[in-house]
Design a protein around this nucleic acid. Structure first.
Length: 112
DNA sequence: CCACTGACGAGTG
DNA sequence: GCACTCGCCAGTG
């Protein structure tokens, strides 16, 4: 199932890092299928343990969902709790928090 | 089987 | 940066 592949990738996102929908899709072997990632996360059964809050859109912001802004706020709070900072526009520095499968943890990079 | 929906992305003007 | 279009596909009724 495609959902399983997607979730497997999401589970690998380290704390304090984020990945875009498109990136997750690619890592899951599903290039150009970012929508599926969103769909897979939207269909998450309650109680499923995956860091869904670490998945954001390519603009570097938390995506709205059909349910309302409640969970959107929760997602942002969870990220801030992990050290991810948002600017006034509600966006985060993708160049700084974007996760690379090879980068792993360790380096807090952000500056060359 | 068909129509519609939806946490998106990249390209164009 | 904003508005619009097109591509892509699993679920649901």
């Amino acid at each position: 199932m495609t959902h399983a592949r997607i979730l497997a990738v999401v589970r690998r996102i380290p704390e304090g890092r984020v990945a875009t929908y498109g990136q997750v899709a690619r890592l899951a072997g599903l290039p150009n299928q970012a929508r599926l990632v969103g769909y897979a996360l939207a269909a998450l059964p309650e109680g499923t343990v995956v860091p869904w809050h670490r998945v954001i859109n390519a603009r570097g912001e938390v995506s709205l969902r059909r349910g309302g802004d409640g969970a959107m706020v929760e997602q942002r709070l969870r990220l801030e709790r992990e050290g991810v900072r948002f600017d006034a526009a509600g966006r985060l520095a993708l160049a700084r928090y974007a996760w690379s499968p090879r980068t792993r943890l360790a380096s807090t990079d952000g500056r060359p």
